[in-house]
Amino acid sequence: MSADAQGSGTEDVHKYVPMYMAHNAKTMQFARAGLAAISGSAAGILGLKNLYGFAFYAVNWVLISFLLLAIKTQFKPHLFFKGGAKDIFTDGFIGGLLSYILFHTFLYGLVHLYQ
């Protein structure tokens, strides 16, 4: 953990502001909901199947995590998240995956199946 004047490592209650942590979590969740919708639709349009679908999701996940790291935190994630960059890259993966599957299936059905 980064050294600072107030925290002692064991007493984290006074080190972080919980309201802002919740605000940041909400912002990230908004971005990930957008990711699921857009990348799911694209995967359905492109007609990706099986593992390619999940690989596309993983690629997009890494892409948006990197974009968030660069644009929102300006490469200083320890200021905004408790776990730092690890939180950006791992939080909410499964929830996003479920929405991704929905949009993927929906667009795939719309574009490829109904002729």
Binding site: A33, L98, S99
Partner: peptide, 26 residues
């Protein structure tokens, strides 16, 4: 399962949806 994130997008937070019940939400 999939529309819970859409609800987050359009309703803001604090909506009751299945992910809370399943314990998958964080």
């Amino acid at each position: 399962f999939g529309l819970s994130s859409v609800f987050t997008l359009i309703l803001g937070d604090n909506n009751g949806n299945i992910l809370y019940i399943l314990g998958l939400h964080h």
